[in-house]
């Protein structure tokens, strides 16, 4: 008396199936495997090292704001171009449709990077950083879990001013105060660092963006 294992595709055979199957609909598994075979990873589109020539080309090619972005753990750099503005929130994107949202230079969200920061409660932290004085601020980050639930990480940040730092990059030739926010919360702590000019704009920063992405460095090349 046999029982039946009903399935449309064998999981163990996804690879062979996906590579062999064809049809009228695009097959995401094929793209994925091509990426794996070709050595591309999630950050491939933003990947590589940005050269001076590329920077020049991008600045020449667009009148829009340009931000240099470095995902440290992936050793992946990209130039992102301002594509939309919603109140104080600026969305920057790559051609591969990965995006970053900055509010006065502070990262408040990412999209398409894998493990995205979905949104933040950054009001207090941003105010504290912009003040260029020592202070404390609450800070919350919202993520999706692999199970598609929303997970909120809450932190208390202690913000301290450091020295001044010159920023010469792209069209930016300025400088500001180095502000370090040491944030403690569920499960650990991290240090975010920002260079803030007199108008309260973050010209450059290094910010923790969650367990999956880690730290992202940003620097304005044109505002």
């Amino acid at each position: 008396m046999s029982a039946i294992l009903k399935r449309r595709f064998g999981l163990a055979l996804i690879a062979s199936l996906a590579l062999a199957a064809c049809g009228s609909e695009p097959n995401p598994a094929v793209d994925y495997l091509k990426g794996v075979v070709g050595g591309a990873k999630t950050d491939s589109n933003a990947g590589g090292v940005v050269t001076a020539d590329q920077t020049a080309q991008v600045l020449a090619a667009t009148p829009s704001p340009v931000e240099f972005v470095n995902i440290e753990a992936r050793n992946s750099q990209a130039l992102m171009i301002g594509i939309e503005q919603n109140g104080p929130y600026s969305t920057y994107g790559t051609a591969a449709r990965q995006s970053l949202v900055l509010r006065s230079g502070m990262i408040t969200a990412t999209r398409g990077l894998g493990g995205d920061l979905m949104s933040s409660e950054e009001d207090a932290l941003l105010r504290a950083v912009q003040s260029r004085q020592a202070g404390n601020a609450g800070y919350q980050m919202h993520f999706l879990t692999p199970g598609d639930e929303t997970k909120t990480l809450s932190f208390q940040c202690s913000v301290v001013p450091g020295g001044t730092q010159a920023i010469k990059a792209g069209e930016i030739n300025s400088g500001g105060t180095v502000m370090t926010a040491t944030c403690r919360g569920e499960g650990g702590q991290f240090d975010n660092t920002y260079v803030v000019d007199k108008r309260g704009t973050i010209l450059a920063g290094r910010q923790w963006v969650g367990f999956t992405i880690g730290f992202i460095g940003t620097q304005a090349l044109r505002r």
Binding site: T51, N70, Q165, D191, T193, V195, G217
Partner: peptide, 28 residues
């Protein structure tokens, strides 16, 4: 966010070390 689109002629093409400036500025 204030935008400055001027002074493109005075561009200094600034390279990879974008984070380098930052890295020197921060401790551990």
């Amino acid at each position: 966010m204030p935008k400055s689109r001027s002074a493109r002629s005075r561009l200094k093409f600034w390279v990879p070390g974008a984070a380098a400036g930052i890295a020197t500025a921060v401790s551990a």
